[in-house]
Simulated scan of single mutants.
Amino acid sequence: MRDLLNDLEAGKMLSDPDPVRRAQALARTPLPKRFYKAVSVEPLDDGFAVKLDGRPVRTPGKALLTLPAEAAARLVAAEFDAQTETIDPVKMPVLRLVNTAIDGVSADPQAVLEDIVRFASSDLLCYRADGPQGLVERQNDRWDPVLDWARSALGARFNLAEGVIHVEQPRETIAVLGAHLAQRADPFRLAALHVMTTLTGSALLALGVEAGALAPQEGWSAAHVDEDWQIEHWGQDAEAVARRTQRERDFMACVTLLGALKDSGRH
Rank of each mutant, 00 (worst) to 15 (best):
M1Y: 07
M1N: 04
R2V: 12
R2I: 14
N6H: 11
D7S: 15
D7C: 14
K12I: 14
M13Q: 10
L14D: 15
S15A: 15
P19I: 07
R22V: 01
R28I: 05
L31Q: 15
L31I: 03
P32Y: 08
K33S: 15
R34E: 05
F35L: 07
F35V: 06
Y36N: 02
S40I: 04
V41I: 04
E42M: 05
E42F: 03
D46S: 13
D46P: 01
D46W: 09
A49P: 06
A49Q: 13
V50P: 07
G54V: 09
V57Y: 03
R58P: 01
T59K: 09
T59A: 06
L64N: 11
L64V: 12
L65V: 15
T66N: 07
T66I: 14
L67D: 09
P68R: 14
A69G: 09
A69T: 11
A71E: 12
A72H: 07
R74P: 04
L75V: 06
L75D: 03
E85L: 15
D88E: 15
D88V: 12
P89V: 02
P89Y: 01
M92V: 00
N99A: 12
T100Y: 01
T100E: 08
A101Q: 01
I102R: 09
I102Q: 10
V105Y: 02
S106R: 12
A107L: 13
D108Q: 11
Q110K: 13
A111T: 10
A111C: 02
L113Y: 03
D115I: 04
I116V: 15
I116K: 02
R118I: 05
R118D: 12
S121N: 10
D123E: 10
D123G: 10
L125P: 05
C126E: 04
D130M: 04
G131P: 02
G131T: 05
L135Q: 05
E137F: 11
R138S: 07
R138C: 01
N140R: 11
N140L: 04
D141C: 06
R142V: 06
W143N: 05
D144Q: 15
P145K: 10
L147V: 09
W149S: 00
A150Y: 03
R151W: 01
R151E: 13
A153W: 09
A153K: 12
L154F: 15
A156Q: 08
F158P: 00
A161T: 14
V167M: 00
E172I: 00
E172N: 00
T173V: 11
T173C: 14
I174Y: 06
L181W: 01
L181R: 03
A185Y: 08
A185H: 11
R189W: 03
T198R: 14
G201L: 02
A203L: 08
A203G: 09
L204G: 06
L205R: 06
A206K: 06
L207D: 12
L207E: 12
A211I: 10
A215M: 15
Q217G: 05
G219V: 01
W220L: 09
A222R: 01
A223D: 00
H224E: 04
W229V: 00
D237R: 08
A238V: 11
A240D: 14
R247S: 14
R247Y: 05
F251K: 02
F251H: 03
F251C: 03
A253E: 11
V255R: 04
T256K: 13
L258T: 04
G259Y: 05
A260V: 12
A260F: 05
L261G: 04
S264D: 15
S264M: 04
R266N: 04
R266G: 02
R266E: 06
H267S: 11
H267N: 12
